[in-house]
Nucleic acid binder design. Sequence first.
DNA 1: CTCGTATTTGAATCTCGATTCAACTAGCCT
DNA 2: AGGCTAGTTGAATCGAGATTCAAATACGAG
Lengths: 205, 205
Amino acid sequence: MTQRKSKADRRLDLIDAAHRAMIQHGAEGVHLNQIAEEAGLTSGAVLYHYPDLRELLIEAQHAGMERFYERRVKKISGISDPADKLIVTIRSGLPDGPDDAGVRLLCELGGAAGRNRVYATLLTTLFDRQVSMYQTILETGAAHGVFTLAQDSETIARNLVALEDAYGYRIIARHHSIDPDKAVELILDYARLATGNPLRPADRR
Amino acid sequence: MTQRKSKADRRLDLIDAAHRAMIQHGAEGVHLNQIAEEAGLTSGAVLYHYPDLRELLIEAQHAGMERFYERRVKKISGISDPADKLIVTIRSGLPDGPDDAGVRLLCELGGAAGRNRVYATLLTTLFDRQVSMYQTILETGAAHGVFTLAQDSETIARNLVALEDAYGYRIIARHHSIDPDKAVELILDYARLATGNPLRPADRR
DNA sequence: CTCGTATTTGAATCTCGATTCAACTAGCCT
DNA sequence: AGGCTAGTTGAATCGAGATTCAAATACGAG
């Protein structure tokens, strides 16, 4: 028999297992047995901890989203120059490539949000948090005089997050001429107009 | 017994029925019986025409996408002023509201595209066609001297389509402060920077 | 009008995943 | 050590939906 764990520990394991299973089989198409296998348990054990599967799936989505956001925050935390920060932030919001697991899951959620209010709320919250993140960067840059905002910071921030989202979908769908680098370039083209800053990526200065 | 139809006619009916069923039950969650009911037939009859259900679903998605695109083309076909045309085009790419059936289906597809190459291709094609549509408008406007493009037309066009897509998702997810009007405003804010044209919506001139 | 066949039905069957639950056991408590 | 209990198993059951197919029938051809 698999090693036993406390209820709390096991639930954390299961959230993780469900997350991995969803990435492989789709947010909505995932099966109980796939989650059980991913956790190294049987379906009965999963049900013991989560009699309602939907609850587990929601927690797993929530965790995945949190992870995505935290990683972005961490990546930019050490950067002080607003222009650099903006560039790195844009890059960190895009998938690494068509197989980026985290972003793929977010895309799946986007599709389900039309039918599922909980997912819709999760995504809306994530969107708003990302907007705030960008707003902070934009306003800091404006205060330091490196950005000259052509529009109010909320408008720019929303458009930046929107562009990120949309190009994420394109990359996941394997658009032949839009890869992560190209997407960064496209988004930066907007950011340059909006901030009045040339925003040269670090490796080209 | 339901009225009999020729193979070709019935297949058209079924594509339509599948489209309606997908809108109600989700692009991937839809069931054979739901399609049959929508078509006024039994499941056996559906299978008779489409032994492989996936083929029907793909054709239905294709049809839905075509319809979406054609409607946009029609809406802007009578407009000659490039600024007006741009504004109307932007509006026509957004859902009417959270329950807009056509756009909801497209959103579902976006989620599935990560796992399904056919859907990915369909969406990529749609994206590129929309980009071309915008490029034409932008370059016509530039040629007439009403637009002063801040970037090459492909960049602007791609960003416009991307913004449209992303705000479509937000609207479908019922973002509390982004409705179709607000989304148009946000996209126009970018379009103004990119075209150098004030782009006043018709009702405010 | 009648035959022949393409289309449709509906009931039987199949499939597969969810759900239940009695039995089993790992690990804690005393 | 021995018992207690929470966690886990696995086999049985359930159920929803897909699939099959013989029978029924609408409709066109001749």
